[in-house]
Design a protein around this nucleic acid. Sequence first.
DNA 1: GTAATGTGTTTTTTT
DNA 2: AACACATTAC
Length: 719
Amino acid sequence: MDLLASLNPPQRDAVIHPGGPLLILAGAGSGKTRVLAHRVAYLIQERGLAPQRILAVTFTNKAAHEMRERIDTLLGGRVARPMWIGTFHAICSRILRADGEAIGVPSAFVIYDEEDQRKVVRDALDELGFDERRYPPALMHSMIGRAKDEALDVARYAARATSFMEEAAARVWQVYQRVLRARGALDFDDLLLETLRLLDEHPDVLHRYQERFEHVLVDEYQDTNRAQYLFVHALAGRHRNATVVGDDDQSIYRWRGADVRNILEFERDYPDATVVTLAQNYRSTKTILAAAHAVIQHNPHRHPKQLWTSNADGVPVTIYEALDGADEARFVAAEIQKRTSAGARLRDIAVLYRTNAQSRLPEEECLKAGIPYQVVGSVRFYERQEIKDILAYLRLTVNPGDLVSLRRALATPRRGIGDVTLQRLAAQAEEAGYAMLEAMRRPQVLESLPRTAARAIEEFAAIIATLTDAAATLPASQVIAQALVTTGYQTMLQDEGTEEALGRIENLRELVTVAQEVEESTGEPGLAAFLQHLALVADVDTYRGDADCVTLMTLHSAKGLEFPVVFVTGLEEGLCPHIRALDEEGGLDEERRLCYVGFTRAKAELLLTHARTRSIFGSPSVAVSSRFLEEIPQALTTSVVARPAWAEGVGSLGRGSGPGAQRRPVQTFAVGARVRHTKFGDGQVVEVEGEGDGAIVTVRFSGAVKRLALCYAPLEVAE
DNA sequence: GTAATGTGTTTTTTT
DNA sequence: AACACATTAC
């Protein structure tokens, strides 16, 4: 296959770049994923590079899968299998599993998620005798997290601490880290930091990986943090074949430690770097691109650049001013139905918002309207209660020292073991130098406990022992299936019998299926590998592009995706830009980039909505439309304003409620377009006067020619 | 030791 | 509005 035929000149330059550092500045929709896939395929096919000598870092697992598939398609066959491709976290996890023992990381380490981490922080505060009111756990946790993003260690952080709070955080961090280590656990940041430490302290390991990876490619480079930066530069240090791709305008993870300087200063890091700029957009209409550009150009300190496209002008951007959140949701649902009845596919439509909480109203409206939808994110699959409960048992079998999991497993199903018993156990275990699980098996320990408690403990220890045996020989999926029964968890849910409980059983079955799939795709059947994999699943990894439904998700999750029709909802001051971002240095710029990312997801049609009142924590408050909306030139937009309920039924169209029925959101029709009117039937547009809200179209129907006010006439595009 | 009730808090965004 | 956490009652 000719890998270059379908590429434009700069894309081709990037693909055939012989070696040495390469920076690809790729604007939204400029085909960067394609270029990366083609470059890898080219290296393999034309340069004869062995796939296992390539390391590619993507932002999500989903992107990793897609990349692998694209490369396979380009080359024909499953060529990309031996190539390492995944997120920073997944790749570091793999390295640590293989080589972590050298720095004392057990290969079956568990990964603590946000909730687990919070518990450890609170334990640490407790141990230090710090009052949670004076030292909020959330604040302590985030201070530690930010420091880790910058690849600091406790000692250096403590040394440079300037405030009282920072000194406190340093002490908490110290205990936090000791606790994690004692439990054989790592948090997300540790995956990177421990890998860096491994590479630093064991030059032989560093050299092995450096030697192996002749090419290192990194996608979404604008969203890498300091630790990730160091990782890339360490691994590419030998061959110097680092290819990084990114767009400073799409940097939206600063709050997570992402440092846009990584991309802006790549040329300083590598003075001999080749820079390729991809400025042609293949995704969006001229109108959408112009609107997006109008917004982003308000940001200072950006690489000045302007995307262009040879695509059509397309239709204007719709701006809808809703009465409130519910009205906004009704508008969205009505517009979706309009488009699907005109032949659009549900999977081509996305509804985006700033915060997860905003998904509720559109969800309800979709439900009412019978529109199938999927929500990406909000409650993550593996963070569901039932999943975490079962995982707690499994984690214990892999890692007996995991106290967070022990506490969790002991609590559900209820076994009559509470804090009192647990503390007695812990005290005895410490005294005798046993691990907790070990103490549970000692007769002399059990004897000292009340009879009922002792029997419950025995039973629990037996369950863990059975599962541990199973985990030693069986693949993860079978261990999980067994755990559902052995722990009594499934019985508990069945007895409960509520719809919710049955849903939970469903989720647990799904977990078994997921395990089977992961076993197949990774070829690593063990429970430890599965658990580590599971902890690294991102929200957007659950997005099913092939499902026949509308997609609801946050602006963050939407990065890297595209849809013919995109709604961006809640464009109000305080929401987008978010109020919490406004008092952070540079926060507004990042909100604007987020908005830009949202706009540039749209291929054909972009609909922006905001509400006049918005419920915050249950109580309604007046909302002002987002400054980002004001930044879009009116020439590019069509505005629709909701009519308040009290004006309903005056004069016209008294059918039903909701904006879809009472006031027709304005569509635009070109002269010649075939249209359908509910009363007059099919016709053809012969003239358009004015535009937007006040437009009047003249339509020739089979019987008569009519002049119709677009905002009131029940007129649609005919399919 | 558990279930029920009450209170306060929360929302940015996520690997 | 929804949820986590604490207190209270059993």
